[in-house]
Write a protein that binds this DNA or RNA. Structure first.
Lengths: 162, 162
DNA sequence: CGAAACAGGACTGAAATGGTCCGATTTAGG
DNA sequence: CCTAAATCGGACCATTTCAGTCCTGTTTCG
């Protein structure tokens, strides 16, 4: 879970690099690809998708290249990664009433999964790339295993409820 | 992202069903599989893994079956789903210093991803299955798209810091 | 002792993923 | 004007992952 695709990884890398550019400056895919050590052709595709998503601007021609459409503080993690995770979000039967799954019959987990998904998306859309790339792992190590005292999902309110 | 595998889905279903059993009662795989409409053999494997993970108890023999090892309030979402998401957690270069990735060179995203992963795992380990299966999606609809005001990942403190 | 359950390895077909290749279009510079 | 270098974008392929099946044990109740 939350195993991001390579495309997502490359997108994050690229956006980070673009964030280091001076105002008005551009960078071309071949250059970027060599710097980060990623396949040129694949990165090209990623950049195209980022453009379609409106996160970057491009200019064609011999001295063309890419630049951020807005600062990293105004791009969320979900923005960056969403275009590449088509199965964006979740799990079992998102594609609701396709086959079977008449609700409450086979798949009584539809609603919970949708709730969890919504929550996750909301969380990831409150994390800007600027914050993300600056993050360092917490010193705590046994963290994942430790807490065995369940709390409510609602205790961390969704941003839109505020 | 967060696209759970079928096994995870089946595990959640099975655990939910097991939660509805009377104390001391068991249910066999063939029965369970038919009730929820999932392939018998696959479910069998899932149950085996759940047993290895210590979430359920099994008894063999002709009237054997499975039962919860502890109540749903004491099983977290991460517990249930973890065993089936080997790529549990995250993304690009978790397998740290395997090839390349000498840190800060190609993959300056290693630390941020690890931080994000830790955070997610921590969150999912504070959600009990009891809460999960009872969850309903919030009425708000434009929720995912709405918030464009980035906040810090640290603002939602990790449980282990408390 | 036999039917029915768990236990678990081996295998297969389909789908997704990462990556490559090639052609078309645009555009700066000589 | 013409070429080199860049963005576009479709087609394609190889490898892996995944869902599902099969088959052979082993346990245990009646």
């Amino acid at each position: 879970m939350l195993k991001l695709s390579k495309k997502s990884e490359y997108a994050l890398m690229a956006l980070q690099s673009l964030g280091n550019l001076a105002a008005g400056e551009r960078i071309a895919v071949p250059m970027l690809a060599e710097q980060r050590g990623i396949p040129k052709d694949l990165l090209a595709k990623v950049m195209q998708q980022l453009k379609r998503a409106g996160l970057v601007h491009s200019s064609q021609g011999v001295s063309g290249g890419y630049a951020l459409a807005r600062p990293l503080t105004a791009i969320t993690f979900l923005d960056a990664v969403g275009p590449f995770e088509e199965a964006l979000g979740l799990a079992p039967c998102v594609d609701r009433n396709s086959e079977g799954c008449d609700r409450a019959d086979c798949c009584s987990l539809h609603d919970p999964m949708e709730a969890l998904n919504r929550w996750l998306m909301a969380q990831l859309s409150t994390l800007s790339l600027a914050e993300f790339v600056a993050a360092r792992p917490p010193v705590v190590h046994g963290c994942v295993k430790a807490p065995r005292q369940p709390t409510s999902m609602e205790r961390r309110p969704l941003p839109c409820e505020a």
